[in-house]
């Protein structure tokens, strides 16, 4: 049994079958990549996992519990964090405040009316945030506004915000999209470091084969809404079905 079990998930948008009978099992403490050409249904699948979309049929189980019908914030509280294609951070807040919010969400739940205490007094949480910021090399920028940072820094901040909640599963939606080669390599190094340092399961959706092959333990290839193959990176590389899906070559 994997930590995330997707069974027979179907999703239609009008006449388009976005997902057809998707089965997926993500093992604990592995990096699982989902690849596929444009329009293969990768993002739709991800949205079904985090509560943004509701599949028409099928089930999605996370750590033995169904996530279907739950709101995104409830799913996060279960232990799933998500990194977006374009970094989603709190642009009007400082880097430190950006870190405090996920920490408070983890400690106090989805809503708590703590209107009389001061953020300044949360010394423990600040310490925790500083440790995490050191790890992603953003400590010296802690008083900067989120919106005034470079894209690479925003990406690192977003990852730090997700990681500080100690999620059991981290979903990454094209974490290197639109990045220069050097930034991509930095991100790969960061993700590798994260993987080594803590017990975390990651599920990556990615276009860039370089990223996928340097990180993933297992790869699922998605084409036209259905999984073609699931295997180790070595076996995927020369797989005829994959070549066909990507290049349109006859196998």
């Amino acid at each position: 049994m994997g930590i995330l079990e997707v069974k027979d998930v179907n999703k239609r948008f009008g006449g388009l079958q976005a997902l057809g009978d998707v089965n997926l099992s993500v093992k604990e403490n592995t990096v699982h990549a989902i690849i596929g050409p444009n329009g293969a249904g990768k993002s739709t699948l991800l949205n079904c996992l985090v509560g943004k979309l509701m599949p028409d049929t099928g089930s999605v189980m996370f750590a033995g519990q169904s996530v279907l019908g739950r709101k995104p914030y409830e799913i996060n509280q279960m232990g799933i964090s998500r990194v977006f294609q374009t970094p989603e951070i709190f642009g009007d807040l400082t880097v430190m405040e950006n870190m405090m919010i996920p920490l408070l969400a983890k400690r106090d739940g989805s809503f708590r009316m703590h209107a009389y205490e001061s953020v300044e007094d949360e010394k423990d949480l600040r310490g925790e945030a500083e440790t995490m910021l050191t790890e992603v090399k953003l400590l010296d920028k802690q008083d900067m506004l989120g919106s005034s940072m470079s894209r690479g820094d925003k990406r690192r901040l977003e990852m730090a915000m997700c990681l500080i909640q100690r999620p059991k599963l981290l979903l990454l939606d094209e974490p290197t999209a639109g990045m220069a080669r050097a930034d991509t390599n930095n991100t790969i190094d960061l993700l590798k470091e994260i993987k080594e340092k803590r017990d975390i399961t990651m599920c990556i959706i990615e276009h860039d084969m370089h990223v996928v092959f340097s990180l993933a333990d297992r790869i699922t290839v998605l084409a036209q809404g259905t999984p073609l193959v699931e295997d180790t990176p070595e076996n995927i590389k020369g797989h005829p079905k994959v070549k066909e899906a990507y290049l349109g070559e006859a196998a």
Binding site: V50, K71, P72, Y73, N76, Q77, S81, R82, F84, E88, I89, F90, G91, D92, L93, I101, P102, A105, K106, G109, S110, F111, G146, M161, Q165
Partner: peptide
Amino acid sequence: SNQNRMYYTGL
């Protein structure tokens, strides 16, 4: 600032 991020941060 960002309601989307808020929802995906468990709030």
